[in-house]
Design a protein around this nucleic acid. Structure first.
Lengths: 252, 252
DNA sequence: GATAATTTGTGCGTATGTATG
DNA sequence: CCATACATACGCACAAATTAT
């Protein structure tokens, strides 16, 4: 490899660039080239130090610089994890799950977890403009990118207006298509609220992330073009793999 | 108190409404009236069960309903915490710290933590349109609402353009005022990126929140009306007290 | 670091009132 | 009137997480 050779160059005669900077440069390039995307994890400091034939202190300085640049995330006792592959989930007026991922060259997929009718609790009823206890249809899915889970989405639709929606889910039609069947040609995101919390063990298991790492919770309200509430949603995003992005609505 | 009387009514003769629903109603009203805002914490289940003279199971059903409505957050081993007082921090094109809080009737304040010049690391340089290693001015503040810390903000300004900015900080002038001094009449938020993580012990201490609860990190870029980058910022928001809100830009 | 106290989570069993047929 | 099913409420005990000592 060329990497080890740099070290030799420096050893023979000072090149003017400190060793840790050379290593940081090399590792940074490799990370950007998706060299560690299989595990999402860097080799241990000991292994890397051996590979570059430097002391572990030197290597730590290099990796520390990578962390400053946001390329990796160092976790005491666990390891060093590639951070650049954070999936950008854009929150805009026209937020759509599939479009959002396809734009980044990722393959979106969903797994249906549960779907049933229930009574709306207070807050949800308010958001949807219903009476408390009014029937709503709950649809829970596991959202994936390239087959890896990125979030668990729970959507609530007014049962009154979307009667029969649950039967259409098995067909695999997209939610946009299903809504169109009910006369909703288009809809927009009226509001998103973002909080953070620790996942339940069950959620962590579903998202395939450690229960010691936090998740982001996005509560949102979608309305049709007449401003009528269509869907109230709660999505739990995997904190390790997802980054929410807010930009002024470029798409009109 | 009237609360205990309800229980008596039920004991003597069924009122038609289940006990746990009555208790949930009562507690919900008290929470909305800021009855527990001193500690932000509900009495223990044992205490509440004694107060309402019901079994702990019955009380738990009531409190569980409050959690479904988003009024409280239950934490195993810690207690039950009032959740409604989440501060809404709006992320929009015209995001301003002070305006954001004043709109909710909260008193904004800032404490200067550190301020010095440094070399821009890779990512920041890219965002600000600078060469890597170019000098930037770093200003770190603790942001408060009504005297309670809500976030730790780190702002980076190109040193070239804002030479002398650090000296103006002690005056207590708002950052908007300071920027105006440098010819920046107005500026807008170009982008915000939201991630979540666990706080360092130091950060948790500053934010006065448990180190076991996550924080939200917002990276943002502010640009002037000519689209030139003005400020790159990283804010760590207290996950327990802050909720980020994204709405389509109503303010044009 | 170890221990005890506090607090929420869960399971079992029992009893009662209500709705259904 | 009786049988059944379901929701509600109580009592006791222990597990699990957190905090204080």
């Amino acid at each position: 490899m060329t990497t080890e050779q740099r070290q030799h160059i420096f050893s023979g005669r000072p090149s003017g660039v400190s060793v840790w900077k050379q290593i940081a440069e090399t590792l940074g390039t490799e990370i950007r080239d998706r060299a560690f995307s299989l595990t999402g994890r860097l080799p241990s400091e000991t292994e890397l130090a051996a590979r570059f034939r430097v002391n572990r202190h030197t290597l730590r300085q290099a990796v520390g610089a990578l962390q400053l640049d946001g390329l990796v995330r160092i976790e005491k006792g666990r390891g060093t994890f590639v951070q650049h592959e954070l999936l950008d989930y854009t929150l805009s007026r026209r937020t759509r799950f599939s479009e959002n991922l396809l734009r980044q060259g990722l393959l979106p997929s969903k797994q249906l977890l549960t779907a049933h009718e229930m009574a709306a609790p207070l807050r949800m009823a308010k958001e949807l403009g219903l009476e408390m206890g009014a029937p709503v249809l709950m649809v829970q899915t596991l959202d994936e990118a390239n087959g890896h889970p990125i979030g668990m989405a729970t959507a609530y639709y007014p049962a009154m207006r979307f009667n029969g929606l649950l039967d259409m889910l098995s067909d695999g039609s997209s939610s946009t298509d299903i809504l169109r069947h009910f006369g909703v040609e288009d809809y927009v995101r009226a509001k998103s609220q973002i909080t953070t919390q620790m996942p339940s063990d069950e959620t962590a298991r579903l998202l395939k992330q450690p229960a010691t790492r936090p998740v982001m919770c996005v509560e949102c309200l979608d309305v049709d073009m007449q401003g009528r509430p269509i869907k109230y949603g709660e999505t739990v995003f995997c904190g390790d793999r997802v980054q929410l992005v807010v930009t002024p609505d470029s798409v009109a």
